[in-house]
């Protein structure tokens, strides 16, 4: 069965099991490897992508649920706010092992797209679903604030 949707701005049709989680469709069928597998149960956020602009966990989202919708993975991030996030990530040297960071960047970008000046409480609410076992959390918080300053400037 074919599912058609927009992946990183491109109309895309994938001919696979519609129950296949979006994560594996994106990784193994579309060949985009930036989105990671961490828990398979929407508990860790490593698989975070944007669905119509909102951060969602692709590991539990069946491909059928994205039919006709816009999916953005880290490979498709292009907005000024996304670039501000990624620049802050580099400036503040956020990643350690790096495995969760695609998901962190996607969650942070979704937050800043909605709310360009988040408070610490806003960051807590938006980012606590993304686990980082290296505990780069202090730098994630600082980088989001840094990106917010860049966006304002």
């Amino acid at each position: 069965m074919s599912i058609s949707f927009v992946l990183n701005g491109k109309p895309t049709t994938l001919d696979v099991d519609p129950n296949m989680p979006l994560l594996w469709a994106v990784r193994e069928v579309a060949g985009l490897h930036g989105t990671k597998f961490g828990c398979g149960m929407s508990l860790c956020g490593a698989c975070t992508v944007h669905l119509d602009g909102a951060a969602v966990r692709s590991c539990v989202l069946p491909l059928s649920a994205v039919a006709g919708r816009h999916v953005t993975t880290i490979e498709g991030l292009k907005s000024a706010r996304a670039k501000a996030v990624q620049t802050a990530w580099i400036d503040l040297q956020v990643p350690q092992c790096g495995y969760c960071q695609s998901g962190q960047v996607m969650s942070a970008t979704a937050l800043l797209e909605k709310n360009p000046a988040p408070t610490d409480a806003d960051i807590d609410a938006a980012m606590s679903g993304n686990i980082c076992r290296c505990a780069t959390y202090s730098r994630i918080r600082a980088a989001i604030h840094r990106a917010a300053v860049t966006i304002k400037a």
């Binding site: 490897h33 930036g34 989105t35 990671k36 597998f37 993975t73 880290i74 490979e75 991030l77 990624q86 990530w89 580099i90 040297q93 956020v94 990643p95 790096g98 495995y99 960071q101 695609s102 960047v105």
Partner: peptide
């Protein structure tokens, strides 16, 4: 600056996965 940080900030760093 860490050699691995740019690739780990844009999803291109390669893991076994």
């Amino acid at each position: 600056p860490r050699v691995d940080v740019p690739a780990k900030s844009n999803g291109t760093a390669g893991f076994t996965l």
